[in-house]
């Protein structure tokens, strides 16, 4: 565990909590892509199956349980509790165009051809593109609430910090996982355009951030 890993995990946790609280407090999931949130629930479920087979640490187990729990709670709020506020018409990204190629890639390129390893690889690849329905939705409506941009910033920052963590681990532990690094790079690059807008147009007294 190094400082980049820890701050990355905390940034990820902050993003998840921010989104849950935003929906809960406003009693609305307007502007939030339910499809992205379902993909994240699938990502956590397929990645953390090792909860059943191995114990790493109390930190590891509890964070995994919190991530999974919050992901399903978010999906529940969007599709059940506040379903009336869900903007399905604007959430029109075709997720099969992500899930099918990502599934094929996980079968082809993985560390070990076993069910658990393929599911883990699938979750890594899927996470890298899971935000696309959300970004697509924002580009379609042309705006995002400030709190939604904070969510996206924390979520993007998390993977960028993990990249620094992997550089650290390469230098100090000689550890290099090309699958995670490749997917992490793709994931971070997808947020770059958003990072730029967040820094230049966010904050101040703007209520909303417009995206092209």
């Amino acid at each position: 565990m190094n400082v980049f890993r820890l701050t990355g995990d905390l940034s990820h946790l902050a993003a998840i909590i921010i989104l849950l609280l935003k929906i809960w407090k406003s009693r609305s999931c307007a502007g939030i892509s339910g499809k992205s949130q379902i993909l994240f629930a699938v990502v956590f479920t397929t990645r953390y199956l090792d909860l059943l087979t191995s114990f790493i640490s109390l930190y590891n187990t509890s964070m995994k349980l919190i991530y999974i729990g919050c992901a399903y709670a978010t999906v529940y709020l969007i599709y059940v509790k506040f379903r009336a506020t869900y903007d399905g018409n604007h959430d029109s990204f075709r997720v099969e165009f992500l899930v099918v190629p990502v599934g094929g890639l996980a079968v082809l390129i993985n560390h070990n051809f076993s069910l658990m390893e393929i599911l883990w690889t699938f979750s890594i690849y899927l996470e890298s593109v899971a935000i696309l329905p959300q970004l697509f939705m924002i580009s379609k409506t042309g705006e995002a609430e400030t709190i939604t941009t904070h969510y996206l910033f924390c979520l993007g920052l998390y993977r960028a910090l993990y990249l620094l963590n992997w550089i650290w681990r390469y230098y100090f532990e000689g550890f290099l996982d090309m699958i995670a690094i490749f997917a992490g790079l793709v994931q971070t690059v997808l947020y770059c355009d958003f990072f730029y807008l967040y820094v230049t147009k966010g904050g101040k007294d703007r209520k909303k951030v417009m995206l092209p």
Partner: peptide, 10 residues
Amino acid sequence: CHRTRAKDEL
């Protein structure tokens, strides 16, 4: 390059 993943990462 390791043919494995970091099992401690989230």
